[in-house]
């Protein structure tokens, strides 16, 4: 992969840039988030781990304001975004980039149009500048000569990387990754991990990564939080998490079945 960005020294911020406070959320009577609390420091990578269906993606969608909590608050840079109207929320979202689990590329648009989408909406650049930025971001994620292809012509790994290029096109302050390595082969998964680290170094962005891939979590995390039953049950540095005595966390990070079959049946 080519390296088009310069590394910066990214110092952690003084306080949390994102603060999720006692958030509850239910869907059709199913209580998914049950008073969840989470703080994410600026310029750091917070990895949220947890089993499938525990509400990790729901948490990300609350952070970017796609979902609103039934109760509780989501504070971003001192603003309670759960109270904002859609227009104001749209302005806040322009400071975020989000990488979706299945990439969520727009099927009817080419790769270039996908990556350029947010830039065109923002209206701050002319078409030549937009094309330059798009090609630059595609090079950053290790893709060349794909700008005129349609998403259906790309492999899973390429789609994921185009999704990352789209998320970072406008140099957002915060990047949210929803299961970035799920469904990829081990080498491509590591390519994506390297990519997240490189983006972190070149853009000094705050990242929140939702995953159940522990190898990925240890590689990219400054801090790890474990989610279960709609709450954060433990958080700490990767070293602290690895040496935890909490049996739930310990079982998850070691991938032990124990009585999980009974719990899930």
């Amino acid at each position: 992969m080519s390296d088009t960005g310069e590394s910066k020294v990214c110092l952690p911020g003084d306080g949390p840039i994102i603060s999720v406070e006692d958030v509850h959320k239910s869907f059709n009577g199913l209580h998914v988030l049950r008073g969840l609390n989470l703080k994410v420091m600026a310029n750091q990578t917070m990895v949220v781990i947890g089993g499938s269906g525990c509400g990790k993606s729901v948490l990300l969608k609350h952070i970017i304001g796609i979902l609103r909590p039934d109760s509780g608050r989501v504070i971003f840079d001192s603003t309670d975004i759960s109270e904002l109207k859609e227009d104001d929320l749209s302005r806040v979202r322009s400071r975020f980039g989000m990488v979706f689990q299945g990439a969520a590329l727009f099927d009817s648009l080419s790769v270039l149009e996908n990556v350029a989408f947010g830039l065109r909406r923002a209206g701050k650049h002319d078409e030549d500048q937009i094309r330059e930025i798009v090609l630059d971001k595609l090079r950053l994620v290790g893709l060349r000569d794909v700008e005129d292809k349609m998403p259906s012509e790309l492999s899973g790994g390429m789609r994921k990387r185009v999704g990352i290029a789209r998320a970072i096109a406008s140099d957002p302050e915060v990047i949210l990754y929803d299961e970035p390595t799920t469904g990829l082969d081990p080498i491509m998964a590591d390519v994506v991990n390297e990519l997240m680290l490189r983006i972190q170094k070149t853009q000094c962005a705050t990242s929140v990564v939702v995953t159940h891939d522990m190898k990925s979590a240890y590689k990219v995390a400054d801090r790890i939080a474990m989610m279960k039953d709609g709450v954060i049950v433990e958080s700490g540095t990767p070293e602290e998490i690895q040496s935890t005595e909490n049996p739930t966390v310990s079982q998850f990070i070691r991938g032990e079945a124990r009585d999980a079959v009974e719990q899930h049946s």
Partner: peptide, 18 residues
């Protein structure tokens, strides 16, 4: 419907489009 279930509608929101 396909755009909805593949999260493309959510992606639009994150990119500033209604």
């Amino acid at each position: 419907g396909t755009m909805k279930v593949t999260e493309q509608l959510d992606a639009l929101r994150t990119l500033g489009a209604d």
